[in-house]
């Protein structure tokens, strides 16, 4: 279903439909996260990916245009590049451990250590919360910095939007 959604993004022309499809894609991936025992990630993806992103995109659509103009005919070069990259990545997975195997490097060093220590050191039942807020608190600090920077950027880019629009209208009124 995820693949069908992603492919329909490729062929659809209406930008409104594309934004809705991207929300659907996020919700489906949240379901997949629940299946893979990542409930916290699923919450965030459903709220942020399907919620906030879609709202932001719809807002942008309101300020810009509604549908995609006619494309040039599809070229062969991007497709070739994409297939090549995919083939290389798949070649890379040949060395990867089996899906869900408990004896992989990822499962034998840091993960069990966290699970052992959290009940003793931090009295929080949710391991993800404990790591996020305590062991890897610096990540969240960096994340806050990124979001802050992005906020400043958006504000700078959008500031004076209404004012410029008004001036434009006055100019047009004056010239005609």
């Amino acid at each position: 279903m995820l693949i069908v959604t992603a492919l329909s993004v490729v062929v659809t022309r209406s930008l409104f439909a594309i934004v809705t499809l991207s929300g659907v894609f996020s919700l489906l991936s949240a379901l997949l996260f629940v299946r893979m025992h990542a409930v916290d990630v699923a919450f965030t993806e459903a709220a942020v990916g399907a919620g906030i992103s879609t709202v932001l995109m719809l807002g942008t659509l309101a300020l810009t245009s509604r549908s995609e103009r006619s494309d040039k005919k599809p070229q062969i070069a991007p497709l070739f590049l994409v297939v090549l990259t995919g083939a290389l990545l798949i070649y890379g997975t040949l060395d990867m451990p089996d899906f869900g195997a408990p004896d992989t490097p990822a499962q034998t060093h840091v993960g069990p250590d966290y699970i052992e220590r959290i009940p003793k050191e931090i009295d929080v039942p949710n391991a993800v919360t404990a790591i996020l807020a305590s062991y890897r608190g610096y990540d969240t600090l960096g994340e806050t910095a990124v979001v802050f920077t992005a906020g400043i950027g958006v504000l700078l880019l959008m500031s004076g939007l209404a004012r410029r629009r008004k001036e434009d209208e006055e100019d047009e009124g004056g010239s005609s």
Partner: peptide, 9 residues
Amino acid sequence: PLPHVLILT
């Protein structure tokens, strides 16, 4: 739990 934390960020 570690990948979950990283992906949340």
